[in-house]
Design a protein around this nucleic acid. Structure first.
Lengths: 343, 343
DNA sequence: TGTTAGCACTCAACCCCTTCGAGTGCTAAC
DNA sequence: GTTAGCACTCGAAGGGGTTGAGTGCTAACA
């Protein structure tokens, strides 16, 4: 594709992203300085249409980018927008906050993301990256409830109240705590299986009933077998997108995003291997999101992939802005989490 | 107002609730067996219009209920719908679950409410009713983080990780824990003020710095001075209401409900004194919710008002169904929470 | 050979007008 | 007091003309 054709395609896509309306040859020559007449642009547009980069809704309308066009744009033409100091500031503020619980931290991050990008935002902590276990404490609250406190290498604590069907004895609990702490400390959360726990328990020579209960307790606390964890925010931002003025489309999307599994699948498939991935329209894994695009960035803890964050918008989304924002956010998030881990 | 007029008004409102379209005299005689001709109904409708119970959008349209009409309907004409066994089942299931944390419990309740009523649902735990403190535990996690665990009379545990700027000594922490537990046990959370804590601290003869830090810790943990707590869910249910097909109205409402303060104010003002209260259209305290109605029910723990739950819908909401549901839910919630407290 | 001006053609959007029908209010008869 | 009949109102829906942005083609130009 020659230089001028690229400039024409770029102009069409930029204009369509800005105005959500089919772009004609005259509009382009007026708004973008290409140094040629509308007729020439028409010729280029005709070629681009033949090659499948742009489409015509109907004969006498302007052109709109096709999925192929967007793809080419994102891969070759798009320029990342410069972030404003205010934006950088907002990112830093949201991530600098001292949250002692990973959930709060992720939620704060999500909110910032959707505020900045103006699109719904998501975060995924995959089951496979929950860090190493550093400490287990079992705090008896009363004779029926135990608070299990986990500290992981991410430096963040998860805690959970577990109801026991039988009363438990504090001293027994403490010995279990010590044994478990010693045996499991330093292990990847993901490597701790029910079988492993069960084996450890047997070595403790506990009464049958207590053993069963404690096993249940630890299982709940460690959320063994629990899948990916998903956070969602700012879905309502879709309201301001012209393509979702039509309620039924909006509804379809909302229903999709209400299901955690769907979001998890989207993010998972959209994440890819590299630091940042753009999924466009028809490339979406889920039928009802085919008229959307997604920008997903991975974040890393000390160089290891730890999870992904993403935003969803219309295919007509502002890629240059969104990609720049998401890169920066993922970058800051990675270093912030790596810092926390070191402490 | 005579019997026939009541039946006409009732028919108009029921029909409008069902179909969201102005109701004419012929429609009424066809759909509702009033035993009179359209002309007679017209005469009654003319009277009802004069008295302000119904309105005419324009000369040749049918009538729609006015705020006054709805009010009369809710107070005098409305029949509560019988709940189906399935509905009762859903209510019981959502409330029977064993949640050890009040937040999860309320969220589960909210979800059930909005699923059953098909409207956005809210719950409010007012600052003034957080129960009595039963136990404080301060669990050192590492030299910088302390987990504060509170058990309240509602039988539900709140816990919070607090970051300390200086390292703390576990034995010191334990003595603080004991002192605090003894001094504060049985007190209403609401009666515990920073001043009281400060006084208790002074008696402990701690080092100045540690005292300040521990005070901060307790303050955070007890969320002293924290206001009402608000839970929201199912806002997207509004999408299926014909009055919100217009995106801009929807947007206004979403913006309103995004602000916790607004929701808190709505519920607070809508709750009233009795067990259940209906606020209709113009009676709404907030300008942008004037075309909505709200059904708010209070829930009680051992006879004492503990908070409120509510749903928001169009003024054309199905009052008979919604009121019946909300009464039942508030009732079950009250007894469920009272049970928990006793345990 | 690439670029441009000119021109006929297309088609959605818009406005205006008419028709249609649901609904009303009034009057006179029952 | 109730009802039938009738003229009237007015929004919704449909048809037709106009407008204007946009296209593709052709012929002339550099």
């Amino acid at each position: 594709m020659d230089e001028r054709k690229k400039r024409v395609l770029s102009a069409i896509i930029n204009d369509y992203i800005a105005n959500a309306e089919p772009v004609g040859s005259r509009t382009i020559t007026k708004r973008y300085d290409l140094g040629v007449s509308p007729a020439t642009v028409r010729n280029e547009m005709s070629d681009l249409t033949d090659e499948g980069y742009i489409e015509q809704p109907h004969t006498s309308a302007g052109r709109i980018p096709s999925a192929k066009g967007y793809r080419f744009y994102v891969d070759n033409l798009m320029e990342r927008e410069r972030l404003t100091p205010a934006q950088k500031q907002q990112i830093r503020e949201a991530l600098a906050g001292e949250f002692s619980e990973i959930d709060d931290y992720m939620r704060s991050c999500i909110n910032m993301m959707s505020r900045l990008t103006k699109y719904p935002a998501f975060a995924l902590i995959p089951a496979s990256s929950r860090g190493r276990l550093e400490n287990i404490q079992l705090v008896p609250l009363n004779d029926r409830q135990v608070l299990a406190v986990l500290q992981t290498s991410v430096g963040i604590v998860q805690h959970k109240v577990v109801d026991m069907s039988d009363p438990v004895d504090p001293t027994e609990l403490m010995s279990i705590e010590t044994a478990m702490s010693n045996a499991l400390r330093g292990k990847e959360l993901n490597d701790i299986s029910v079988e492993l726990l069960s084996r450890l328990m047997t070595e403790l020579h506990l009464r049958e009933r207590l053993r069963a209960q404690t096993l249940g307790l630890l299982e709940t606390a460690l959320q063994l077998g629990s899948g990916n964890r998903v956070f969602t925010g700012g879905v309502m931002n879709m309201l301001s997108q012209p393509e979702f003025q039509d309620i039924s489309r909006l509804r379809g999307l909302v229903d999709l995003l209400d299901e955690e599994n769907n979001v998890s699948e989207l993010l998972d498939k959209g994440a890819g291997e590299g630091p940042l991935n753009v999924t466009i329209g028809g490339e979406m894994p889920v039928e009802s999101a085919r008229d959307c695009s997604m920008v997903v960035a991975n974040y890393f803890i000390n160089g290891e992939k730890a999870g992904s964050i993403g935003v969803l918008g219309p295919t007509r989304m502002s890629y240059g802005r969104t990609v720049a924002l998401m890169e920066q956010i993922a970058h800051e998030l990675s270093s912030s989490l790596s810092d926390k881990e070191k402490k």
